[in-house]
Simulated scan of single mutants.
Amino acid sequence: MEDLQQMNSLSATSSKFASTNKSAMVGFDDDLLQIKERHIGQSSMLKIISIVGMGGIGKTTLARNVYNDSYIVHYFDICAWTIVSQEYNVQELLTSLLNSMTDLGHKLYEMKIEELKEKLYQKLQCNRYLIVMDDVWETNAWEEVRRLFPNKNNGSRII
């Protein structure tokens, strides 16, 4: 799968983060533009774009501004957001992703992990998708789900 994916990393380094209810950003204009360009331009291969940096500098706000951008919303068929956290549970992670893109509701909580994985892969398979996995503390969480994101050369992206 690594041959099919191009790994990219952005380091969020600004200390001029303004916290407001509107997710306003100060000092991240260039980062926001760069991420948007990586989402809609360049390769049609599946791309993983990492936003890395110390806690509290605005990584989530930066990702949220990309995710909510009107052009990004219209460009992707599916947009989904999940919070992984330091102590994650694979079943909850999969349920969260599927909840943000389907209407299955309580039925998801009755499914086993393998069923959830299959449902997620099927849902993404024929669509151009943007997935945000926020607050990832370790690579194990990513390794658990990475094969569930199909690369159909349609411009799908993961943050």
Rank of each mutant, 00 (worst) to 15 (best):
H106C: 06
T102W: 00
L46S: 07
L93M: 12
N68Y: 01
I48M: 15
V84D: 03
E87D: 13
D103K: 01
E114W: 04
K59V: 03
S50W: 05
T82I: 14
G56E: 05
Q42W: 05
L94G: 02
S43E: 14
K107L: 10
Y75A: 10
S96C: 10
H106K: 13
H106I: 09
Y88E: 04
E87M: 04
Y88Q: 06
L97C: 02
A80E: 06
H106W: 10
V52C: 09
K107T: 14
M54N: 02
N65M: 08
G53R: 00
Y71L: 13
V84L: 02
V84G: 03
N65V: 07
L94R: 01
E110I: 07
D103F: 00
I49Q: 07
R64S: 08
T61A: 10
V66S: 13
Y71A: 10
V84T: 06
A80P: 04
M54F: 15
A80T: 12
V73A: 11
R64T: 02
T60G: 05
N89F: 03
Y67T: 08
T82H: 02
K112D: 10
E92Y: 13
T82C: 11
S44F: 14
F76N: 01
S70C: 05
I83C: 14
M101A: 14
M101D: 13
